[in-house]
Each structure stands twice: as C-alpha cells, then as structure tokens.
C-alpha cells in the first residue's frame, strides 16, 4: 500500500505490455495482425530514423491544418454573421440543418471525382467536417455576448467591421478558441480516415501499406504513432488554451 499515488495509473499499461510480450514470445505466435511490443518498438524506431514516418506525419498534419484553417474560417464567418443577426439565423436554419448531418466521409467520392487523389480532396473533406463545430459554437458565443457591449459599440458609432473586430471577436474569443480546439481533433480524425479509406498519402496510407505488406510490427508502430500524434496535439492545444485564457476557460468545455 506504500506505492506512490502517481505510479498507480501506470501499472495497468505496463502490466498489459509485459503480458502481451510474454504471451507472444512463449507461444511463438506467427501472426499477420499481432507483433510483440519489442518488435513494434524496433519498427517504430526504424520508421523514425529512415524518415518515412516523419514525412507521413507532415503530410497528414499539413492536410489536417489546411482543412481546419479553411473550414474554420468559413465556420467562423458564418457563425459571427448568424450570431449577430437573428433574422439571418432564422432564415438559414433549415438549410444548415439539412447539410450538417451529412457524414463527412460520404463526400469522399464527390471530392474524389471533382479533385482527384491528393492534398486538395483531403483538405476539402476536412474543411467540411470542421465548418460545423466552429459555426455552432461561434454562433452561440456571439449570441451570448453581453448586450451592453453591443450598445456601447452603437453609442461609439463603430462601423460594422470595427464592431466585429473590436467588440464581438474579443468577447467571444475564449469559446471560439475552444471550438477550434475541438475542430482540430476532428480534423486529425477525418484526415487519417480519408487516408485509410482512399487517399494514398500520410499516416493513414502508411498504416494501410504496412498491413498489405503483412508487416504487423510496422502496422502497430504506425497505430501507436497515430495515437501519440493525437495525444500530443490535444495536450498542446489544451496547454495553449490554459495559458491564453486561464484555467477558467477549460471548465467551460461542457457548455
């Protein structure tokens, strides 16, 4: 019982890794889908040193961030417009509710015939997926701005552009950042999914190639790396949110 509290969460993953390694070694398993953790670690080190893994990571992250920037910008502009104008918001309701539920991967074949394989089609699909969370949360954030701030803007006779730039965006910024953080997670998921389904580039294509080459060690190394990428991205954005807006911003996650 004298075990330090901080070590307890590590116990399960370590035990699982050891048991997995022992089972694979003792039973001498020959498998197309499993490999002992030591072999996975070796494959991971190999793919890191020959640069293939880093190039794939760069391709995936580039597509994900380009899609996030494009979709986020569209979502932000629409969200601000709909949050500021009740009339516009009510008029666009049915149109938005009709397009939003389309699963992003369903657009994959359309993007494929319109844009072909490569970065552009992946960016388009990621952008479509990122528009909605940013739009919905920005609209709510802008709609929830203290009305007196808007009155101040009117008294100061700010132009519409200045009103958005000096009052609306600063007031809604913490929640807009939260929207972008959630959208960044979605962007990575969608990018990897598109690559696995069809697009021959990045981490998703890398893991599919390793599977088809019957290299379970390399395949699982890619899986581990994709998990690490997701974890680091999430942790970095959380840290950025805390530094920029303080701890209070994180508690608003449920809203």
């Amino acid at each position: 019982m004298s075990m330090p509290e901080r070590l307890k969460p590590l116990l399960l993953p370590l035990a699982a890794l050891l048991a997995f390694e022992a089972a694979m070694r003792l039973a001498a398993v020959q498998s197309d889908s499993l490999a002992p953790p030591s072999a996975i670690a070796l494959a991971l080190a190999g793919a890191l040193t020959d640069g293939s893994l880093l190039i794939a990571t760069r391709d995936t992250l580039a597509s994900a961030f380009a899609g996030l920037a494009l979709g986020g910008a569209i979502g932000l502009a629409l969200g601000i417009a709909l949050g500021l104008s009740h009339i516009l918001n009510r008029l666009m309701e049915v149109t938005i509710e009709a397009i939003r539920p389309i699963p992003s991967v369903a657009l994959l074949p359309i993007a494929l015939i319109a844009l072909g394989f490569g970065y552009r089609m992946e960016i388009a699909i990621v952008a479509f997926a990122c528009v909605w969370p940013v739009l919905i949360m920005t609209r709510a954030a802008v709609g929830g701005i203290e009305p007196r701030l808007i009155e101040v803007a009117r008294v100061l006779r700010l132009t519409q552009l200045d009103r958005v730039r000096k009052i609306v965006i600063p007031a809604a910024l913490p929640r807009i950042f939260l929207a972008f953080r959630l959208a960044a997670g979605i962007a990575l998921i969608v990018a990897v999914t598109v690559e696995i389904a069809i697009n021959p580039l990045g981490l998703g294509a890398g893991i599919m190639t390793a599977q088809q080459a019957l290299r379970p060690d390399l395949m699982l190394a890619y899986l581990v790396w994709i998990g690490v990428t997701g974890f680091v991205l999430n942790a970095a954005l959380m840290a950025a949110q805390t530094t920029l807006f303080g701890r209070a911003a994180l508690t608003g996650d449920g809203a």
């Binding site: 889908s33 997670g185 990575l188 998921i189 990897v192 999914t193 696995i196 389904a197 981490l203 998703g204 893991i207 599919m208 390793a210 599977q211 395949m219 699982l220 890619y222 899986l223 994709i226 998990g227 997701g230 974890f231 991205l233 999430n234």
Partner: peptide, 12 residues
C-alpha cells in the same frame, strides 16, 4: 487512448 483516431484500427 481517447484522442486516438479510431479509424486507425481499421487496418488492424
């Protein structure tokens, strides 16, 4: 494991 893009387990 939460931030892992789940589609990555499709090849496995």
């Amino acid at each position: 494991l939460r931030p892992l893009p789940v589609s990555a387990i499709i090849p496995v």
